[in-house]
Write a protein that binds this DNA or RNA. Structure first.
Length: 420
RNA sequence: GCGGGUGUAGCUCAGUGGUUAGAGCGCCUGACUGUGACUCAGGAAGUCGGGGGUUCAAGUCCCCUCAUCCGCCCCA
């Protein structure tokens, strides 16, 4: 094999593209009902945009970005996440002027992270997501979580877990970090230097550890929720009750801390056990400080990003595949006279919106029918000697094998009717 | 970035260091002079992931490398 797709990337083949299209359409239909409008941002941005928003000590910025210099010596980076570019565009184009709140969504945007690939973890993957800008009320958080949950429902995916937490504002996090670090100090001394450095850089990470020693040590660790300022605490409590009223099940999960610095207060992830080590399907939360960090006015905002590859993997594992659209008609000719009519008849069908194809290699009648079957056509339309003479066509429904002879003039109408 | 598994036909996989590398499915042709899916017969299809080494002899053993999968890390 001389060339392969680069490590961690993959082609999306015709046999699977319909699942992508179905998912994207279902998402767009859903969010349109909530008043979201799609936005598309460039595939790369100034590197600084991500450093400023994700945080210069974040895993993404320190280890995972595809950064490069262009011929004009600009520092650019392939999008490692979807939110910062959308917020940049919001500021750049003064979308606040449309009146707040502003509801934006993005669909199947490519996302790049230099990581070691595994099932469900790729160097290029695709995300869809929503940003709800300009609302501080926990109703906004609830709407975002509800949309995430309903997107999975629309894809036929069940058995998911919504993990919810609040990490508070800057002051809370600072105080809590110190408390946590102090609590973990005895264990940290014996840890692998690299793990230890990571833990000290972002102590909240320790909460997510799978190391039994760490889990044991943190059994009695202080809880973030106890450190929340009164305002954060009441926001979190209201969010919980709004979700409960909406009958959206969730579990409060102190280990959910998120990897990007821009989050404040509400954070959440949606998990599935269907993907081995990669259990997170969707992550999001509130980022009230993000716009300010980008030089804009302080604006409360909340959103999520959802991995499409992972969603589709879970969808497949749950046997919830959508039905693949069929080509309506495969036209078949038995002789030269029939062949001449094929093209004009196919054109007629297409003008009415039906899909029609035919053999171009002069195959035998038998081979043509076989081909019709193989490409998944619904009907084989046969133009033999008799049909040409009588200006009719034999329409064979491939699934049942039933045949009907109808006038060529009524073919489009007949197929359209049967198709619906 | 760390540890481990796996790479043989389009797909799923057999193959003890020893002739010209196989099977099932799929594909093409025919049995079938106007009919796919079933049956039968035939056919095409391989850089045994790539490179190097050991050996009289390597798909098989060793080293390197690429890809993929599993775990860690991190996340979608």
């Amino acid at each position: 094999m001389p060339y392969q797709a680069p490590r961690g990337t993959h082609d999306i083949l015709p046999s699977e593209i319909y699942r992508w299209q179905a998912a994207e359409q279902a998402f767009l239909r859903l969010v349109t009902q909530y008043g979201y409008r799609e936005i598309r941002t460039p595939i790369f941005e100034d590197t600084e945009l991500f450093v400023r928003t994700s945080g210069d000590t974040s895993e993404v910025v320190t280890k995972q970005m595809y950064s490069f210099k262009d011929k004009g010596d600009r520092d650019l980076t392939l999008k490692p996440e979807g939110t910062a570019p959308v917020m940049r565009a919001y500021l750049e184009h003064r979308l606040a002027g449309d009146g707040q709140p502003v509801r934006l969504c993005y669909v199947a945007t490519p996302v790049f992270r230099y990581e070691r690939p595994q099932k469900g973890r790729y160097r290029q993957h695709h995300q869809l997501g929503c940003e709800l800008i300009g609302v501080a009320s926990p109703e906004a958080d609830a709407e975002i979580i509800e949309i995430a949950v309903r997107t999975y429902q629309a894809l036929g995916i069940g058995s998911l877990q919504v993990k919810l937490n609040s990490i508070g504002r800057a002051a809370t996090r600072e105080a809590y970090r110190e408390a946590l670090l102090a609590h973990a100090q005895p264990v940290l001394k014996d840890m692998d230097p690299e793990d230890r450095a990571r833990a000290e850089r972002n102590p909240l990470r320790m909460l997510d550890s799978k190391d039994p020693v760490m889990i044991e040590a943190l059994q009695k660790a202080p809880k973030v929720l106890d450190y929340l300022e009164p305002e954060s605490k009441s926001t979190f409590d209201s969010l919980c009750s709004i979700l409960a009223e909406a009958e959206i099940p969730f579990v409060i999960s102190p280990e959910i801390v998120r990897g990007l610095d821009y989050y404040t207060d509400t954070v959440f992830e949606v998990h599935s056990t269907a993907l081995g080590a990669q259990t997170a399907l969707c992550g999001g939360g509130r980022y009230d400080g993000l716009l300010k960090a980008l030089g804009g006015p302080p604006t409360p905002s909340v959103g999520f990003g959802m991995g499409l590859e992972r969603a589709l993997l879970v969808q497949e594992s749950q046997g919830a595949l959508p039905t693949e659209p069929q080509v309506a008609a495969f036209l078949i000719a038995a002789d030269e006279a029939g062949r001449a009519r094929l093209r004009s008849l196919a054109a007629e069908l297409r003008t009415t919106g039906l899909a029609a194809t035919y053999d171009m290699d002069g195959r035998s009648l038998k081979a043509q029918i076989k081909l019709a079957d193989r490409i998944g056509a619904q009907y084989a339309v046969i133009l033999g000697e008799t049909e040409i003479a009588e200006q009719t066509a034999t329409v064979k429904e491939l699934l049942s094998g039933n045949q009907t002879v109808i006038p060529q003039s009524q073919l489009a109408q007949y197929l359209a009717k049967e198709d619906s």
